[in-house]
């Protein structure tokens, strides 16, 4: 198995410790991974990257960003690949028309709540949000966003029902997760550190 400590590559979820190997099919490729591995990591092991924002292999899966949704034959709906463990004989599709629309729809929601200040942003060119928007082919935002977290913050939260308290809470939770990642990365010198969090 590839050792993530030597690669600047994020497998999405931590490695499973089990000795028992499970074989499944991801986008037509057969892959064997230890029991308890997530579908996202199994795909990653097979060289297939599933879009993601909230997942990192330094933390347990959280399942909040909803970009890593996949389709699994015989299962209803579109489960998140980061929180779904592999099962023997599972047939996973990570790239379908339905998933493309769904991910783009979710990404559009993210960007609708974002200041769109890329050109003056310090993270320009080194930004996961930007990367994902590009990867998912998002070009336009159709929404006319009124109630965004940044606008509400500037307007000193005139409406208690504005999007910002919730959005901020999630951002903080994401930032805490990121900070936790950097802290752990700092404690593990063998690990090549990634780009600093914004």
């Amino acid at each position: 198995m590839k050792d993530s400590r030597l690669l600047d590559r994020d497998f999405g979820t931590p490695a499973a410790r089990s000795e028992k190997m499970i074989t499944l099919t991801v986008d037509g490729f057969e892959v064997s991974v230890p029991e308890g591995t997530s579908v996202m990591r199994a795909a990653s092991e097979a060289g297939i990257s599933v879009p993601k924002l909230c997942a990192t292999d330094m933390l347990d899966a959280f399942g909040s960003c909803r970009l890593c949704l996949v389709e699994i034959e015989g299962r209803a709906g579109t489960p998140a690949s980061c929180t779904t463990p592999v099962a023997p004989g599972m047939v996973v599709h990570t790239q379908t028309g339905k998933l493309k629309d769904l991910r783009k729809g979710v990404m559009e929601l993210y960007i609708s709540d974002h200041p769109l200040d890329c050109l003056t942003c310090a993270a320009n060119g080194d930004c996961e949000l930007q990367d994902m928007a590009g990867a998912l082919g998002l070009r336009d935002v159709r929404y006319e966003a009124v109630d965004t977290h940044f606008r509400a913050r500037n307007a000193a939260a005139t409406s208690i029902r504005s999007g910002w308290p919730r959005t901020r809470a999630t951002r903080i939770s994401l930032m805490t997760r990121r900070n936790a990642s950097s802290a752990r990365a700092a404690c593990a010198p063998a690990r090549k550190s990634r780009a600093p969090s914004p």
Binding site: C65, Y110, D147, R166, T170
Partner: peptide
């Protein structure tokens, strides 16, 4: 949905706010 969302996932957290506006 916007008021009661737990805020964990994006479609519900941001989607509901966009829904009211739409």
């Amino acid at each position: 949905c916007a008021i009661e969302s737990c805020g964990k996932c994006t479609p519900c957290r941001i989607g509901a706010v966009r829904g009211v506006e739409t």
